[in-house]
């Protein structure tokens, strides 16, 4: 394991749609950075005068303080005709970036935090599901996750049993594939791209690729922002603030399978920025 393994990863640092020549001052892993467009309109990210690697994908500008060894992970649905791509915007959360991802992977909290939207009592049981670290892609996957939801999506008109697949392709990013109410057989894609500002502070940039021809863009954004704002109040009050990789303090249960797989994957790669290594 190396302490700086996360340095060489790609991170979201802003929306492509908001790029301008004046630039956006922000931070990446504790270092001030500037995100702007150059004279040709291309994204440019700098840190103390040093030009950082840049790529533009999924509505966002991505950068890294190090030297990424591979391209940004693929989301094939981003190239699928008929989908609507939604830049949800940004939610600043005073929590570890790893905590933000872990919370996204946790469905057991739905009935209690997203009451009457993503879950409701007494439908609190998390049915057995499958979790694996896919060695070929080096990603965490949770599949066959089923849960009753009163309003699974903006386009849903009533309660349905929703099926989820979760994917963690990068330490601060997760992709959720979810039953698509208006188009059975397809998956809606909801992502969580997390910019680590510091070990205990992050900007969360949700992005979606949906089949929904009816909802207005404003309604789609509002729906998702409502969900993330509900999460924020929980995330900002979690103790410890960093994500424990030693489960001595937080004792995981069967419902936390995905979280445990995520933490094992972080540990194996030495992805420890925002993690607490020893239980306190």
């Amino acid at each position: 394991m190396t302490q700086d393994a996360m340095i060489d990863e790609w991170y979201p640092v802003g929306l492509v749609s908001q790029l301008d020549s004046f630039g956006r001052k922000t931070a990446l892993m504790g270092e001030p950075i500037d995100v702007a467009s150059d004279a040709d309109g291309n994204a440019r990210v700098t840190a103390n005068g040093r030009t950082l690697p840049v790529c533009v994908r999924y509505g966002h500008v991505w950068s890294s303080l190090g030297q990424p060894q591979k391209e940004l992970f693929a989301i094939p649905e981003a190239d699928q005709p008929g989908r609507r791509f939604v830049d949800v915007g940004v939610v600043r959360v005073r929590c570890s970036p790893l905590r933000a991802v872990e919370n996204f992977l946790d469905i057991a909290h739905f009935p209690f935090v997203h009451t009457d939207i993503l879950g409701s009592e007494p439908h609190t049981e998390v049915q057995n599901y499958k979790v694996e670290i896919r060695e070929d892609a080096d990603e965490v996957w949770a599949t066959q996750v089923k849960f009753y939801q009163p309003q699974a999506a903006r386009s849903a008109s009533g309660g349905i049993t929703t099926e989820y697949m979760y994917r963690v392709p990068a330490p601060t990013c997760s992709v959720l594939y979810k039953t698509c109410p208006p188009r059975p057989g397809e998956w809606d894609v909801i992502t969580l791209f997390v910019q680590p500002l510091a070990e205990d502070l992050c900007d969360v940039w949700p992005w979606m690729a949906l089949f929904d021809d009816e909802s207005s863009m404003t309604d789609l954004i509002h729906f998702q922002q409502t969900i993330f704002l509900q999460d924020r109040s929980i995330l900002e009050n979690q103790i410890p603030r960093l994500l424990p990789l030693d489960p001595g303090m937080e004792i995981p249960t069967r419902a936390d399978l995905t979280s445990v797989a995520y933490r094992r994957w972080l540990k194996r790669h030495g992805y420890t920025y925002g993690a607490q290594l020893v239980a306190q």
Partner: peptide, 8 residues
């Protein structure tokens, strides 16, 4: 579950 993570 806990042992699968274990100490660092």
């Amino acid at each position: 579950m806990g042992c699968s993570l274990g100490p660092i």
